[in-house]
Protein backbone atom coordinates (compact mmCIF):
# COMPACT_ATOMS: atom_id res chain seq x y z
CA UNK A 1 0.00 0.00 0.00
CA UNK A 2 2.65 2.49 1.14
CA UNK A 3 4.95 1.63 -1.72
CA UNK A 4 2.18 2.26 -4.23
CA UNK A 5 1.68 5.70 -2.71
CA UNK A 6 5.34 6.60 -3.05
CA UNK A 7 5.36 5.35 -6.62
CA UNK A 8 2.32 7.47 -7.40
CA UNK A 9 3.91 10.65 -6.12
CA UNK A 10 7.18 9.93 -7.90
CA UNK A 11 5.16 9.45 -11.08
CA UNK A 12 3.34 12.74 -10.52
CA UNK A 13 6.61 14.57 -9.90
CA UNK A 14 8.18 13.12 -13.03
CA UNK A 15 5.09 14.08 -15.02
CA UNK A 16 5.22 17.67 -13.79
CA UNK A 17 8.96 17.91 -14.33
CA UNK A 18 8.54 16.60 -17.87
CA UNK A 19 5.77 19.06 -18.73
CA UNK A 20 7.79 21.90 -17.23
CA UNK A 21 10.90 20.89 -19.11
CA UNK A 22 8.84 20.71 -22.28
CA UNK A 23 7.78 24.34 -21.89
CA UNK A 24 11.42 25.34 -21.58
CA UNK A 25 12.80 23.28 -24.42
CA UNK A 26 10.19 22.83 -27.12
CA UNK A 27 9.87 25.88 -29.35
CA UNK A 28 7.01 24.75 -31.61
CA UNK A 29 3.64 25.98 -30.33
CA UNK A 30 1.42 23.22 -31.66
CA UNK A 31 2.26 20.54 -29.05
CA UNK A 32 1.15 22.93 -26.32
CA UNK A 33 -2.10 23.82 -28.04
CA UNK A 34 -2.94 20.17 -28.53
CA UNK A 35 -1.52 19.03 -25.21
CA UNK A 36 -3.49 21.65 -23.30
CA UNK A 37 -6.75 20.23 -24.65
CA UNK A 38 -5.76 16.69 -23.72
CA UNK A 39 -4.84 17.74 -20.18
CA UNK A 40 -8.10 19.66 -19.86
CA UNK A 41 -10.08 16.58 -20.79
CA UNK A 42 -8.15 14.46 -18.30
CA UNK A 43 -9.24 16.82 -15.52
CA UNK A 44 -12.84 16.80 -16.76
CA UNK A 45 -12.99 13.01 -17.10
CA UNK A 46 -11.38 12.41 -13.71
CA UNK A 47 -13.73 14.94 -12.10
CA UNK A 48 -16.73 13.36 -13.82
CA UNK A 49 -15.84 9.90 -12.60
CA UNK A 50 -15.86 11.00 -8.95
CA UNK A 51 -19.62 11.48 -9.15
CA UNK A 52 -20.47 9.43 -12.23
CA UNK A 53 -18.11 6.52 -11.70
CA UNK A 54 -17.72 6.07 -7.97
CA UNK A 55 -21.22 7.18 -6.98
CA UNK A 56 -23.02 6.12 -10.16
CA UNK A 57 -24.76 9.44 -10.72
CA UNK A 58 -24.65 10.23 -14.43
CA UNK A 59 -23.90 13.91 -14.69
CA UNK A 60 -24.77 15.51 -18.04
CA UNK A 61 -23.83 18.89 -16.63
CA UNK A 62 -20.06 18.88 -17.17
CA UNK A 63 -20.57 21.71 -19.65
CA UNK A 64 -22.43 23.74 -17.03
CA UNK A 65 -19.48 23.57 -14.65
CA UNK A 66 -16.96 24.07 -17.43
CA UNK A 67 -18.85 27.08 -18.77
CA UNK A 68 -19.20 28.63 -15.35
CA UNK A 69 -15.44 28.19 -14.96
CA UNK A 70 -14.86 29.97 -18.25
CA UNK A 71 -17.18 32.83 -17.35
CA UNK A 72 -15.79 33.20 -13.85
CA UNK A 73 -12.43 33.81 -15.48
CA UNK A 74 -13.96 36.16 -18.04
CA UNK A 75 -15.72 38.18 -15.37
CA UNK A 76 -12.67 38.42 -13.10
CA UNK A 77 -10.41 39.34 -15.99
CA UNK A 78 -12.75 42.02 -17.27
CA UNK A 79 -13.84 43.48 -13.95
CA UNK A 80 -10.63 43.35 -11.94
CA UNK A 81 -7.90 42.21 -14.31
CA UNK A 82 -7.37 39.33 -11.92
CA UNK A 83 -4.39 37.05 -12.55
CA UNK A 84 -4.81 33.49 -13.81
CA UNK A 85 -4.34 31.75 -10.48
CA UNK A 86 -7.00 33.92 -8.84
CA UNK A 87 -9.32 33.10 -11.72
CA UNK A 88 -8.79 29.38 -11.26
CA UNK A 89 -9.09 29.45 -7.47
CA UNK A 90 -12.29 31.49 -7.65
CA UNK A 91 -13.69 29.20 -10.32
CA UNK A 92 -12.97 26.20 -8.09
CA UNK A 93 -14.76 27.87 -5.19
CA UNK A 94 -17.76 28.75 -7.35
CA UNK A 95 -17.74 25.24 -8.79
CA UNK A 96 -17.82 23.82 -5.28
CA UNK A 97 -20.77 26.04 -4.39
CA UNK A 98 -22.52 25.06 -7.60
CA UNK A 99 -21.89 21.39 -6.88
CA UNK A 100 -23.30 21.90 -3.42
CA UNK A 101 -26.41 23.57 -4.83
CA UNK A 102 -26.82 20.83 -7.44
CA UNK A 103 -26.44 18.23 -4.72
CA UNK A 104 -29.02 19.84 -2.48
CA UNK A 105 -31.46 20.29 -5.32
CA UNK A 106 -31.12 16.75 -6.61
CA UNK A 107 -30.45 14.93 -3.36
CA UNK A 108 -33.36 12.60 -3.67
CA UNK A 109 -33.39 12.25 -7.43
CA UNK A 110 -32.04 9.04 -8.80
CA UNK A 111 -30.98 7.64 -12.14
CA UNK A 112 -32.30 9.42 -15.16
CA UNK A 113 -34.00 12.13 -13.09
CA UNK A 114 -30.67 13.30 -11.77
CA UNK A 115 -29.18 13.25 -15.26
CA UNK A 116 -32.02 15.24 -16.78
CA UNK A 117 -31.79 17.75 -13.94
CA UNK A 118 -28.12 18.32 -14.75
CA UNK A 119 -28.93 19.03 -18.40
CA UNK A 120 -31.60 21.44 -17.21
CA UNK A 121 -29.05 23.20 -15.03
CA UNK A 122 -26.71 23.55 -18.01
CA UNK A 123 -29.29 25.15 -20.26
CA UNK A 124 -30.60 27.46 -17.55
CA UNK A 125 -27.13 28.77 -16.66
CA UNK A 126 -26.26 29.14 -20.34
CA UNK A 127 -29.43 31.16 -20.86
CA UNK A 128 -28.62 33.43 -17.94
CA UNK A 129 -25.10 34.06 -19.24
CA UNK A 130 -26.48 34.67 -22.74
CA UNK A 131 -28.61 37.44 -21.27
CA UNK A 132 -25.78 38.95 -19.24
CA UNK A 133 -24.44 41.91 -21.21
CA UNK A 134 -21.36 42.57 -19.09
CA UNK A 135 -19.72 39.35 -20.21
CA UNK A 136 -20.68 39.81 -23.84
CA UNK A 137 -24.10 38.15 -24.10
CA UNK A 138 -24.78 35.77 -26.95
CA UNK A 139 -22.19 37.35 -29.23
CA UNK A 140 -19.34 36.50 -26.90
CA UNK A 141 -16.37 38.50 -25.70
CA UNK A 142 -12.73 38.99 -26.64
CA UNK A 143 -10.23 38.60 -23.83
CA UNK A 144 -6.79 40.00 -23.74
CA UNK A 145 -4.07 37.90 -22.18
CA UNK A 146 -1.98 39.59 -19.53
CA UNK A 147 1.76 39.61 -20.15
CA UNK A 148 3.50 36.29 -19.67
CA UNK A 149 5.16 35.62 -16.34
CA UNK A 150 8.62 34.07 -16.19
CA UNK A 151 9.89 31.36 -16.33
CA UNK A 152 7.49 30.94 -19.22
CA UNK A 153 8.10 32.97 -22.35
CA UNK A 154 4.79 32.10 -23.94
CA UNK A 155 1.27 32.23 -22.51
CA UNK A 156 0.01 28.96 -23.96
CA UNK A 157 3.03 27.18 -22.49
CA UNK A 158 2.13 28.58 -19.11
CA UNK A 159 -1.50 27.47 -19.48
CA UNK A 160 -0.24 24.06 -20.48
CA UNK A 161 1.79 23.75 -17.30
CA UNK A 162 -1.04 25.10 -15.13
CA UNK A 163 -3.41 22.54 -16.60
CA UNK A 164 -0.81 19.86 -15.88
CA UNK A 165 -0.87 20.95 -12.24
CA UNK A 166 -4.65 20.64 -12.25
CA UNK A 167 -4.32 17.12 -13.65
CA UNK A 168 -2.07 16.09 -10.78
CA UNK A 169 -4.44 17.69 -8.27
CA UNK A 170 -7.51 16.02 -9.77
CA UNK A 171 -5.90 12.60 -10.03
CA UNK A 172 -4.50 12.78 -6.51
CA UNK A 173 -7.94 13.64 -5.14
CA UNK A 174 -9.66 10.94 -7.16
CA UNK A 175 -7.07 8.37 -6.07
CA UNK A 176 -7.39 9.40 -2.45
CA UNK A 177 -11.18 9.06 -2.61
CA UNK A 178 -11.03 5.64 -4.20
CA UNK A 179 -8.71 4.27 -1.54
CA UNK A 180 -10.46 5.83 1.44
CA UNK A 181 -13.69 5.25 3.31
CA UNK A 182 -15.30 7.88 1.05
CA UNK A 183 -14.72 5.67 -1.98
CA UNK A 184 -16.10 2.61 -0.24
CA UNK A 185 -19.16 4.55 0.83
CA UNK A 186 -19.75 5.91 -2.66
CA UNK A 187 -19.35 2.45 -4.14
CA UNK A 188 -21.85 1.07 -1.65
CA UNK A 189 -24.44 3.72 -2.44
CA UNK A 190 -23.89 3.19 -6.15
CA UNK A 191 -24.64 -0.50 -5.72
CA UNK A 192 -27.67 -0.01 -3.50
CA UNK A 193 -28.58 3.25 -1.87
CA UNK A 194 -31.04 1.90 0.69
CA UNK A 195 -28.79 -0.97 1.72
CA UNK A 196 -25.89 1.48 2.07
CA UNK A 197 -27.96 3.78 4.24
CA UNK A 198 -29.02 0.85 6.42
CA UNK A 199 -25.39 -0.22 6.75
CA UNK A 200 -24.54 3.15 8.28
CA UNK A 201 -23.39 5.01 5.17
CA UNK A 202 -24.43 8.67 5.25
CA UNK A 203 -25.48 8.58 1.60
CA UNK A 204 -26.75 12.13 1.30
CA UNK A 205 -23.61 13.64 2.78
CA UNK A 206 -21.33 11.51 0.62
CA UNK A 207 -23.25 12.44 -2.52
CA UNK A 208 -22.98 16.10 -1.61
CA UNK A 209 -19.24 15.69 -1.10
CA UNK A 210 -18.87 14.03 -4.49
CA UNK A 211 -20.90 16.83 -6.14
CA UNK A 212 -18.78 19.52 -4.49
CA UNK A 213 -15.39 17.98 -5.32
CA UNK A 214 -16.39 17.04 -8.86
CA UNK A 215 -17.89 20.49 -9.48
CA UNK A 216 -14.88 22.37 -8.13
CA UNK A 217 -12.49 20.44 -10.35
CA UNK A 218 -14.63 20.88 -13.47
CA UNK A 219 -14.95 24.63 -12.93
CA UNK A 220 -11.22 24.92 -12.28
CA UNK A 221 -10.53 23.06 -15.53
CA UNK A 222 -12.74 25.50 -17.41
CA UNK A 223 -11.22 28.71 -16.04
CA UNK A 224 -7.99 28.74 -18.09
CA UNK A 225 -9.96 28.06 -21.29
CA UNK A 226 -10.90 31.73 -21.49
CA UNK A 227 -7.26 32.76 -21.72
CA UNK A 228 -6.43 29.82 -23.94
CA UNK A 229 -8.99 30.77 -26.58
CA UNK A 230 -8.82 34.55 -25.91
CA UNK A 231 -12.53 34.49 -26.57
CA UNK A 232 -15.65 33.18 -24.89
CA UNK A 233 -19.25 32.83 -25.96
CA UNK A 234 -22.04 30.92 -24.26
CA UNK A 235 -22.66 28.49 -27.10
CA UNK A 236 -19.13 27.12 -27.04
CA UNK A 237 -18.42 27.49 -23.30
CA UNK A 238 -21.56 25.51 -22.44
CA UNK A 239 -21.29 23.14 -25.40
CA UNK A 240 -22.82 19.78 -24.50
CA UNK A 241 -19.81 18.20 -26.17
CA UNK A 242 -17.93 18.70 -22.91
CA UNK A 243 -20.59 16.69 -21.14
CA UNK A 244 -20.58 13.83 -23.58
CA UNK A 245 -16.77 13.85 -23.76
CA UNK A 246 -16.22 13.68 -20.02
CA UNK A 247 -18.82 10.93 -19.71
CA UNK A 248 -17.55 8.94 -22.68
CA UNK A 249 -13.90 9.18 -21.68
CA UNK A 250 -14.64 7.99 -18.15
CA UNK A 251 -16.82 5.10 -19.20
CA UNK A 252 -14.54 4.03 -22.05
CA UNK A 253 -11.50 4.12 -19.79
CA UNK A 254 -13.42 2.38 -17.04
CA UNK A 255 -14.56 3.74 -13.70
CA UNK A 256 -13.51 0.85 -11.48
CA UNK A 257 -10.07 2.39 -10.98
CA UNK A 258 -8.90 6.00 -10.81
CA UNK A 259 -6.62 5.49 -13.81
CA UNK A 260 -9.53 4.56 -16.11
CA UNK A 261 -10.70 8.10 -16.91
CA UNK A 262 -7.10 9.16 -17.55
CA UNK A 263 -6.61 6.37 -20.06
CA UNK A 264 -9.94 7.15 -21.71
CA UNK A 265 -9.23 10.87 -21.87
CA UNK A 266 -5.74 10.49 -23.33
CA UNK A 267 -6.87 7.94 -25.87
CA UNK A 268 -9.97 9.77 -27.07
CA UNK A 269 -8.75 13.34 -26.98
CA UNK A 270 -5.49 12.43 -28.70
CA UNK A 271 -7.46 10.68 -31.43
CA UNK A 272 -9.76 13.66 -31.64
CA UNK A 273 -6.85 16.06 -32.00
CA UNK A 274 -5.65 13.99 -34.93
CA UNK A 275 -9.09 13.75 -36.49
CA UNK A 276 -9.85 17.45 -36.12
CA UNK A 277 -6.70 18.27 -38.00
CA UNK A 278 -7.05 15.59 -40.64
CA UNK A 279 -10.80 15.24 -41.22
CA UNK A 280 -13.40 17.37 -39.47
CA UNK A 281 -14.75 18.19 -36.05
CA UNK A 282 -18.05 16.47 -36.86
CA UNK A 283 -16.40 13.12 -37.46
CA UNK A 284 -14.71 13.73 -34.16
CA UNK A 285 -17.96 13.87 -32.25
CA UNK A 286 -19.26 10.94 -34.26
CA UNK A 287 -16.27 8.87 -33.18
CA UNK A 288 -16.89 9.81 -29.56
CA UNK A 289 -20.55 8.79 -29.77
CA UNK A 290 -19.85 5.52 -31.58
CA UNK A 291 -17.05 4.58 -29.17
CA UNK A 292 -19.28 5.37 -26.21
CA UNK A 293 -22.12 3.20 -27.49
CA UNK A 294 -19.78 0.36 -28.47
CA UNK A 295 -18.15 0.34 -25.07
CA UNK A 296 -21.29 0.51 -22.95
CA UNK A 297 -22.77 -2.29 -25.03
CA UNK A 298 -19.72 -4.47 -25.57
CA UNK A 299 -17.24 -3.69 -22.78
CA UNK A 300 -19.24 -2.30 -19.88
CA UNK A 301 -16.20 -2.14 -17.59
CA UNK A 302 -14.23 -0.09 -20.09
CA UNK A 303 -10.57 -0.51 -20.96
CA UNK A 304 -9.70 -1.15 -17.31
CA UNK A 305 -12.21 -3.99 -17.30
CA UNK A 306 -10.83 -5.46 -20.52
CA UNK A 307 -7.28 -5.38 -19.19
CA UNK A 308 -8.33 -6.98 -15.92
CA UNK A 309 -10.18 -9.70 -17.79
CA UNK A 310 -7.11 -10.51 -19.87
CA UNK A 311 -4.89 -10.70 -16.77
CA UNK A 312 -7.48 -12.76 -15.00
CA UNK A 313 -7.78 -15.35 -17.73
CA UNK A 314 -4.00 -15.49 -18.01
CA UNK A 315 -3.67 -16.15 -14.29
CA UNK A 316 -6.32 -18.82 -14.46
CA UNK A 317 -4.46 -20.39 -17.36
CA UNK A 318 -1.37 -20.70 -15.21
CA UNK A 319 -3.11 -22.50 -12.42
Amino acid sequence: MKRKGILFWIGAAVFLAATFLMTQVVGNQYPFFAGYVILQFIVLAVAWSILGGYAGYVNFGTSAFFGVGVYTAVFLAKAFGAPLLVQIATAAAIGALMGFALGLLTLRMQGIFFSIATIALTIIIETVITNWRFVGGAAGIQIERPPTTPPFDNYVQMLFFVQALLVVLAVAISRYIQNSWIGRGLQALRDDELAAECTGVPTLRLKLMACVISGALMCAAGAPAAMYLQFANPASAFDLNYSVSALAMSLIGGTAHWSGPIIGAILLSATQQLLTVTISSEVNVLLLGVMLVLFVVGAPEGIIGLVRKIFHSRNEGKE
Binding site: G52, V58, L247, A248, L292, V296, V297
Partner: peptide, 12 residues
Protein backbone atom coordinates in the same frame (compact mmCIF):
# COMPACT_ATOMS: atom_id res chain seq x y z
CA UNK B 1 -25.69 -1.36 -13.00
CA UNK B 2 -27.97 -1.00 -16.03
CA UNK B 3 -28.79 2.52 -14.89
CA UNK B 4 -25.54 4.31 -15.62
CA UNK B 5 -24.85 2.51 -18.87
CA UNK B 6 -28.41 2.64 -20.14
CA UNK B 7 -28.45 6.41 -19.76
CA UNK B 8 -24.99 6.75 -21.33
CA UNK B 9 -26.12 4.49 -24.16
CA UNK B 10 -29.07 6.67 -25.13
CA UNK B 11 -27.00 9.80 -24.67
CA UNK B 12 -24.44 8.34 -27.09
Amino acid sequence: DAGVRGIAFFFG
